[in-house]
């Protein structure tokens, strides 16, 4: 039960983020929903590496660190990539807002001016 409840929170966050990312018109709201999805994935990765061990690995492993903290390493990389994605995404949104003064994804569906 201890592992499952963390995984369920991750799944709920991911589903809420998916709903927001697919249904929102405002581009910044879509980015915020993407952040929710990233966080759900991070919770899942850290919880799995905290509580479980791969079955094939648990027979012969000499370095416990390599399976106990891999999820945390993944989460560090996910957070870094998310930061890069948000910086780039907001820059694109502001550039679009400057050139055609809208931030709605439905208005900016085609790439031409």
């Amino acid at each position: 039960m201890t592992l499952e409840r963390f995984l369920i929170i991750g799944a709920i966050l991911f589903a809420i983020g998916l709903y927001g990312a697919l249904s929102k018109k405002h581009a910044i709201a879509v980015l915020m929903s993407l952040e929710l999805m990233f966080n759900g994935v991070n919770v899942t990765a850290v919880a799995l590496s905290r509580y479980t061990v791969p079955k094939a690995l648990s027979e012969n492993i000499e370095n416990a660190a390599s399976f106990l903290l891999t999820g945390q390493v993944f989460a560090v990389f996910i957070i870094t990539v998310a930061a890069a994605e948000v910086a780039l995404g907001l820059a694109i949104i502001i550039a679009i807002y400057r050139s055609r003064s809208t931030v709605l994804v439905t208005e900016a569906a085609d790439m031409k001016k």
Binding site: S23, K24, H26, L31, L90, I94, S101
Partner: peptide
């Protein structure tokens, strides 16, 4: 960063509606 972007693009405020 997100709050800055929201404030910079605020003037045609219609909120975050869904399609």
């Amino acid at each position: 960063l997100i709050i800055f972007a929201i404030l910079m693009t605020r003037d045609l405020e219609e909120g975050s509606t869904s399609h």
